[in-house]
Simulated scan of single mutants.
Amino acid sequence: MAEWKNKNTVLTAGFAQIPKGTTLYEVSTMVGCVLIIDADDGVICDASFTFVMDKTSEFLVSLLVGKSVAGGMQEIAQTIQERFLAPGQGAVLQAIRAAVDRYHEKKA
């Protein structure tokens, strides 16, 4: 059983279009991001992405779990920009931002 199942969690999702002309676009035109966030403290408990290759999703999840969305996207964006050096980086950030924004909209 996942550790977050016994917490006050919410699931939120965001999507972004992958830029045309990239290899990733040939596989899928959109990237999706699902975040499970502890509503008590705003910390990401788990995440998932719609990438074909599992390692890409696993790596991104490892960068996000434990990060707080309470203060916005600055720390997450910096981490993604420094460590996820792949085509579609901007789309990944946009999908994460959309999920985080949706979380804040519903929390308010």
Rank of each mutant, 00 (worst) to 15 (best):
A95K: 00
E26F: 12
V43D: 00
K67W: 01
T22W: 09
S57A: 10
Q81P: 02
L63P: 15
Q89T: 10
T23Q: 15
T9V: 15
G71W: 00
Q81F: 12
A77E: 13
L93M: 15
R83A: 03
A98S: 08
G14A: 12
A2S: 08
K5R: 14
V31L: 09
I76F: 06
E105P: 02
E58N: 05
D101V: 10
A99C: 09
D101A: 13
F84R: 02
V43P: 00
I44L: 05
V27Q: 12
D54N: 04
T56N: 08
S68W: 00
L24V: 05
K107D: 12
L64E: 04
K5N: 12
L60K: 03
K106M: 12
S68N: 03
I18Y: 06
M53F: 04
D54L: 03
A77T: 15
Y103G: 00
E82V: 04
F59K: 07
T22R: 11
A47M: 10
Q89M: 10
V69N: 04
Q89F: 04
W4N: 05
L85A: 09
K7S: 09
Q89A: 06
T23E: 14
A95G: 02
D40V: 05
G42K: 00
A98K: 07
I76K: 00
A70S: 14
V31D: 00
S57Y: 01
H104N: 15
K55S: 09
A95Q: 03
V92F: 02
M30W: 11
K107Y: 10
V43G: 01
E58D: 04
Y25F: 15
L11P: 01
P19N: 15
G42D: 08
G32F: 01
D101E: 11
M53W: 01
G88T: 07
E58K: 06
K107T: 10
M53L: 10
W4I: 09
K107I: 07
A86E: 13
D54F: 03
I44G: 03
M1G: 15
L11A: 04
W4A: 07
R83T: 07
A86M: 14
G88A: 06
K67S: 08
N6D: 14
H104F: 14
V69Q: 06
V69D: 03
S57H: 02
K20D: 12
V34H: 03
I76Y: 06
Q81D: 14
N8Q: 15
T9M: 07
T9C: 13
D40R: 09
N6S: 13
P87V: 12
A70F: 06
D38H: 13
Q81I: 13
M30T: 14
S62R: 11
T50C: 08
E58S: 04
T22Y: 08
F15C: 15
